[in-house]
Design a binder for these strands. Structure first.
Length: 198
DNA sequence: CAAACGATTTTCT
DNA sequence: GAAAATCGTTTGG
């Protein structure tokens, strides 16, 4: 089934980040169908989170997307060259979001390889927030896209990730957030957990 | 209006 | 392991 508003409006962004593991991210971009299992996420707890763009209730043209109601895409450019894909959560006015940092290729891998200029499926195809966006065809053009539409959405295909297969730890690349960078808001599927490729 | 910088990736040593 | 690539957003004058 396709996840709907009920899922995205969850008030606990950290719990939602955990629940996204094992869900399937689908894109229909440029007429190409691609899908992958979400394997790594990070929660960004809006106004109270130093690592969030919306810390302290900051509202700018860019961060405005995060104040939308849960179930929209927040995509922005990082380091001048990487498009990072986030899922906006909670109700309108509350800037919570989950950064998707990694997926495991499922469908449309040929398109992903082409977009990434690669020949064969390797571990690095979609293993970072920038590379997965590139492989899936997601760019800043998709900022504010509804995740309950046809272009980008997330499905539950019944894949369950047990707690013992999940690694929880501090977030990456947010050292500037001092103590908040240490919060255990990062979730990833253990690399040796073989639901997928064994 | 100018300057600094970042929720990163790739490449080279 | 280190460093470069690269540009929109944000911040300060």
């Amino acid at each position: 089934m396709v996840l709907d508003e009920t899922f995205y409006r969850n008030k606990d962004v950290v719990a939602l980040a955990r629940q996204l593991l094992g869900k399937v991210l689908v894109t229909n971009i440029e007429g190409k169908y691609c899908a992958g299992i979400i394997s790594e996420t990070e929660a960004y707890e809006g106004e109270t989170d130093k690592a969030s763009h919306a810390f302290g209730g900051r509202r700018t043209k860019r961060t405005e997307t995060m104040y939308m109601s849960g179930g929209h895409a927040y995509v922005y450019l990082c380091y001048g060259m990487h498009h990072l894909f986030n899922v906006v959560t909670n109700d309108e006015g509350i800037p919570h979001a989950v950064l998707v940092r990694g997926i495991l290729p499922l469908d449309g891998t040929e398109f992903m390889l082409k977009r990434r200029n690669k020949n064969k499926l390797d571990k690095g195809l979609c293993s970072g927030p920038g590379t997965l966006s590139k492989a899936m065809g997601i760019s800043v053009l998709h900022d504010r896209t509804s995740l309950t539409g046809q272009v980008i959405y997330i499905e539950d295909r019944g894949i369950k990730i047990p707690d013992e297969a999940v690694v929880v730890g501090p977030r990456i690349g947010v050292d500037y957030a001092a103590d908040h960078a240490l919060f255990p808001y990062r979730f990833l599927i253990r690399s040796d957990y073989g639901v997928l490729f064994g």
